[in-house]
Amino acid sequence: MQVTPQGRGQAAGNGPKAGRAGRFFRHPEPGGTAGPVWPVFLTFKGCPGRCLFCAQPLQTGRPPRPLSRTLDAMSAGLEAAGRAGRGPYELAFYGGVFTGLPEPWPERFLAEAIRLRERGLVTRVRCSTRPDACDPARLARLAAAGLSLVELGAQTFDDGVLAASGRGHDAAATRRAARAVRAAGLSLGLQLLPGLPGHTPAAFARDAAETAALGPEIVRLYPCLVVAGTPLAALYRAGRYAPWDLGTTLAALAGALPVLWRAGARVARIGLAPQPDFDAAILAGPVHPALGARVRALALCDLVAAEVRALGGPAAGLAAPARFAGQFFGHGRELVPRYQALGLGPGTVRFEDREDFFLAARAV
Score class of each variant (00 low, 15 high):
Thr211Val: 03
Arg296Tyr: 00
Gly229Pro: 15
Thr33Ala: 13
Gly31Ile: 08
Pro39Arg: 14
Gly96Glu: 07
Gly13Arg: 01
Arg182Asn: 02
Ala55Cys: 02
Trp244Met: 05
Trp105Pro: 12
Arg8Asp: 15
Phe351Val: 05
Phe329Asn: 04
Ala137Glu: 02
Ala183His: 01
Gly77Thr: 08
Pro223Trp: 06
Phe44Val: 13
Gly292Phe: 05
Cys51Ile: 05
Leu147Met: 01
Leu58Arg: 04
Ala172Trp: 03
Ala233Met: 10
Phe324Leu: 11
Leu78Thr: 06
Ala306Ile: 15
Arg206Gln: 10
Arg20Gln: 12
Arg175Asp: 06
Ala341Glu: 08
Ile218Ser: 09
Thr348Arg: 12
Leu235Cys: 01
Thr249Val: 08
Cys301Trp: 05
Val336Glu: 03
Gly160Glu: 08
Ala290Tyr: 08
Asp279Ala: 15
Val336His: 04
Pro5Tyr: 09
Gly146Ala: 13
Thr4Gln: 12
Trp244Asn: 10
Gly332Leu: 09
Val3Arg: 13
Met1Leu: 15
Pro258Ile: 08
Ala92Trp: 04
Ala171His: 12
Leu283Ile: 03
Thr249Arg: 00
Ala144Glu: 15
Leu71Asn: 15
Thr156Val: 08
Gly166Thr: 03
Leu311Arg: 02
Pro102Lys: 04
Ala173Trp: 05
Arg115Leu: 01
Leu344Cys: 00
Lys45Asn: 11
Pro216Val: 13
Gly100Ser: 10
Pro286Ala: 14
Pro131Ile: 00
Arg333Val: 04
Ala319Ile: 11
Arg220Ser: 04
Leu246Gln: 08
Gly345Lys: 00
Lys45Cys: 13
Trp244Ile: 07
Gln340Ile: 14
His331Phe: 12
Ala319Ser: 15
Arg354Cys: 06
Lys17Tyr: 15
